[in-house]
């Protein structure tokens, strides 16, 4: 009967479509690891991971500067972006009236939609310009001369902080809205102020969701490429680890790949794929933490 046959064919097609995602993840994992692993065996895991010199023309492939650069810039970006994003979420859920929310939420959506190269272009001029005048002016005597161009970890972190805002805001909003209303009403009925019930009750209750939001923000910051390339200076050197490092030009792992893939020879390519592996591992670790938190939240909710 052809109607039954049609059902079967449709179901097979739909299953294949659904399985595409699984297939893609496997392929991505396999190809990135296949291309990148050999170099670890050739030069040794520690020399690649912790070598602080990246000089592909002389077959020296230490990606430590990029690891430090990535972590530094991500850390600063989240330090700025997370409190701000959480604050905006609290404002939208608890304080703002509907009319104000209705102007801010589309703005947040739009921030999420702006292409990263546009952020990069804005950062290249506006943000870098301000930082350059700061590092050449008042800080000119303190900072080494190669830290004065404005292309810096700080510039990249500010741009990234803006870029991760939508992620943090949206997921924090979900987390705050998921807290049962009765909690808040119960607290207000006890005579606490609105603000007291927000920080003593609402925030702790939404904690795991907000942490998830921050972790996803970290993931976005880690993985961002173009905007970072355009403002961070791309020097493959370990930045100073004190506050002056903020003004240091650096290079992220993502930038390393994007900048050099175009002209890399075979071994150099492998080293770039190896950079990709490290990035991939960072993301996997982050994702696992998120999954764990989500699961714990679900179990916590079921109690």
């Amino acid at each position: 009967m052809n109607r039954i046959l049609e059902e079967k064919i449709v179901k097979i097609f739909l299953f294949a479509a659904a399985f595409t995602a699984v297939f893609s993840v496997l392929l991505i994992g396999i190809f990135v690891f296949m291309e990148g692993l050999p170099i670890f065996f050739k030069y040794g895991l520690t020399d690649i991971l912790f070598g602080s010199v990246w000089n592909p023309t002389n077959q020296v492939y230490g990606i430590w500067p990029m690891i430090v650069g990535t972590i530094y810039v991500t850390f600063v970006a989240v330090l700025i972006g997370a409190p701000m994003g959480i604050g905006v979420a609290i404002y939208l859920v608890e304080i703002a009236n509907e009319r104000i929310s209705k102007t801010i939420i589309p703005a947040v959506e739009l921030l999420a939609g702006i292409p990263s190269v546009v952020y990069g272009l804005f950062g290249m001029f506006a943000v870098r310009g301000v930082i350059a005048s700061l590092s050449r002016g008042p800080l000119g005597d303190v900072l080494p001369s190669n830290y004065q161009s404005g292309y810096s970890i700080l510039a990249a972190a500010i741009i990234l902080a803006i870029m991760i805002l939508p992620t943090i805001i949206n997921i924090s909003i979900d987390a705050l809205r998921a807290v049962p209303r009765e909690y808040k009403e119960g607290s207000l009925a006890l005579g606490t102020s609105h603000w007291q019930s927000i920080y003593k009750l609402l925030l702790p209750a939404a904690k795991s969701g907000i942490i998830t939001a921050v972790i996803l923000g970290v993931g976005r910051a880690l993985g961002e490429t173009m905007a970072v390339i355009m403002v961070i200076g791309n020097t493959p050197a370990v930045p100073a680890l004190d506050w002056t490092g903020l003004f240091a030009p650096a290079r992220s792992m993502t930038a390393n790949i994007a900048l050099e893939m175009g002209y890399a020879g075979p071994e150099h390519q492998q080293a770039l794929f190896a950079t990709g592996i490290v990035l991939f591992v960072f993301i996997i670790v982050l994702n696992s933490i998120t999954q764990l938190l989500v699961r714990r939240r679900r179990e916590g909710g079921a109690k």
Partner: peptide, 26 residues
């Protein structure tokens, strides 16, 4: 379905440059 959903989530979290590496190699 759990596996498919997990993979979909994972795809959403992979940095675009890694997609680039994969697309380049494959």
């Amino acid at each position: 379905t759990d596996m498919i959903r997990f993979a979909t989530e994972a795809l959403a979290g992979i940095p675009s440059i890694v997609f680039g590496l994969f697309g380049f190699a494959f």
